[in-house]
């Protein structure tokens, strides 16, 4: 099978089992909220190395720069400028900034960056169908998995449909080009057909999936077999144990305090 050989030969994150990647992502997100700055910096460095190693590094960094970085900068600026109850000021690049706000902003920005990078790394390197197969092989409900997958594809599907409806409406004389105001105005008449067509399609797709045996109980087989290696199993266990230990430790600290 092309998919399985592709999995074996590709460089970077692809050969890693989707569930290992999922455990790793969940762990990094949880840990970046619980651990101190040093640990967060360590996780960030680890994520950066992994991102560089993947074949999809360009896509990850492009998305990070386009969507995450502006938010991170905004969070930092807001904290520097309007952090309450602080009288300590420092000079930074010739500007007088609130020291506590700057430090707090840095921590929040770092946390946000780690979380986003981890999620980007996971979603960019893990094809949804492989994740679905991995989860199904672990015994997850096929119906829930399919609802999740179709939700992931909702944006793509709607964008495709909007494109088609735009052309249809334009051919009927509706002005859909021009300034953003005009475009938003043109969006309203197409909302109803969009929602209705999506609903009717969902009903049909539900029927089709039933006809194709999605709801059947009993053992399933898989064309693309995803096998966890021994190392991956150990890694999963370590991630689970490590994250649980940190959660328990933090919970204990909070209770004692």
């Amino acid at each position: 099978m092309r998919m399985s050989s592709h999995l074996l030969t590709s460089k970077g994150m692809r050969p890693v089992h989707p569930l290992t990647k999922l455990y790793f992502t969940v762990s990094t997100v949880v840990l970046c909220f619980l651990l101190d700055v040093t640990a967060q910096v360590f996780i960030a460095c680890l994520l950066l190395i992994l991102c560089v190693l993947t074949r999809q590094r360009r896509s990850i960094f492009k998305r990070f720069l386009r969507y995450v970085l502006p938010v991170v900068i905004l969070v930092l600026l807001l904290n520097v400028l309007i952090y309450p109850e602080s009288e300590k000021w420092i000079s930074l690049f010739g500007f007088r900034v609130n020291e506590v706000g700057f430090h707090f902003g840095l921590i929040v920005s770092l946390r946000l960056s780690v979380m986003s990078l981890s999620l980007l790394l996971f979603f960019v390197t893990t094809p949804p169908h492989l994740l679905a197969t991995a989860v199904l092989m672990k015994g997850a409900s096929p119906r829930i998995v399919f609802v999740f997958l179709h939700s992931l594809q909702l944006v793509t599907t709607l964008r495709r449909k909007i494109g088609k409806i735009f052309i249809a409406q334009a051919s009927r004389g509706l002005d859909v080009k021009g300034n953003p105001f005009k475009r938003v105005k043109a969006l309203f008449p197409m909302l109803l057909p969009l929602v209705f067509s999506y609903l009717s399609e969902s009903l049909e797709r539900g029927l089709a999936l039933e006809l194709r045996g999605l709801g059947i109980h009993g053992p399933k087989s898989y064309l693309v077999e995803l096998k966890e290696s021994g190392t991956e199993r150990v890694a999963n266990l370590l991630l689970l144990l490590g994250t649980s230990t940190v959660i328990l430790w933090k919970l204990l600290q909070w209770l004692i305090r």
């Binding site: 099978m1 092309r2 998919m3 094809p127 949804p128 169908h129 679905a132 096929p142 399919f146 997958l149 179709h150 594809q153 399609e201 049909e204 797709r205 089709a208 999936l209 006809l211 194709r212 045996g213 999605l214 059947i216 009993g218 053992p219 399933k220 087989s221 898989y222 064309l223 693309v224």
Partner: peptide, 23 residues
Amino acid sequence: VFLSGIKPTVREEIAFSMENLGI
């Protein structure tokens, strides 16, 4: 609509029903 919409290749799409039946 009959196609699952989540399989990346035609080969895997055809396999879908058979996978569900445990063949």
